[in-house]
Simulated scan of single mutants.
Amino acid sequence: MTDGYGLKVLAVDDEPPALDELAFLLGRDDRVSEVQTCGSATQALRLLRDGAFDLVLLDIAMPGLSGLELARVLRQFRQSPAVVFVTAHAHHAVDAFDLRAVDYLLKPVHEDRLREAIDRVRDEPAGHDPDEQVAVELAGVTRFVRRSEVRYASAQGDYVRLHTATENPLVRMPLAALEQRWAEAGFVRIHRSLLVSLDHVDEVRLGGARPTVVVAGIELPVSRRHVPDVRSLVRRTRNGEA
Rank of each mutant, 00 (worst) to 15 (best):
V214P: 00
H110Q: 15
G39V: 00
L26T: 03
L105V: 00
P211V: 02
V196G: 04
P174A: 08
Y159N: 07
D158E: 14
G27Y: 11
D131T: 11
L58Y: 01
L70M: 04
V9T: 10
V102D: 03
E184I: 06
H91L: 13
D119M: 11
L114A: 06
E203Q: 14
S80V: 00
R189Y: 09
K107Y: 00
G27I: 05
D95V: 04
H226F: 15
L47E: 08
I60K: 04
D98T: 01
G208H: 08
V215Q: 03
S40Y: 08
A52Q: 13
L99I: 04
V32I: 13
R49G: 03
E137P: 05
V222R: 02
G27R: 05
V73L: 14
D50Q: 13
L195Q: 11
V94S: 12
S148W: 06
A41P: 04
L99A: 00
R46D: 14
D3A: 04
A117S: 15
V222H: 04
V171R: 06
L65M: 15
D131N: 15
R235I: 03
R151P: 03
P108C: 04
A93R: 03
G186C: 10
R122Y: 01
H110P: 03
L220N: 10
E179Q: 11
G67K: 00
E21R: 14
Y104R: 06
D123E: 15
R224K: 11
M173F: 06
F85C: 02
V134R: 11
V171K: 05
H89L: 11
T37M: 08
M173N: 09
R100G: 01
V73F: 08
L57K: 02
R120M: 09
R143C: 11
W182F: 13
P174Y: 08
V227G: 03
E167M: 09
L68Q: 01
E34G: 09
P169I: 09
Y159T: 03
D14P: 07
P17K: 07
R75T: 11
V84P: 01
E34W: 13
P228Y: 11
A153D: 00
A183V: 02
L70K: 03
A183C: 07
P16F: 02
V213Y: 00
R120Y: 06
D54R: 06
D123L: 10
A44F: 01
E149T: 07
V160I: 08
D119W: 06
A139V: 06
L45W: 15
A209M: 14
A82D: 12
R78N: 07
L68A: 01
E167Q: 15
R49E: 05
L105Y: 08
E219D: 14
D98A: 14
A135V: 10
L106M: 10
R238D: 06
D123Q: 13
E21C: 04
R205A: 14
H89W: 12
A71W: 04
V171T: 08
E124F: 01
Y5A: 14
V201A: 09
E241H: 09
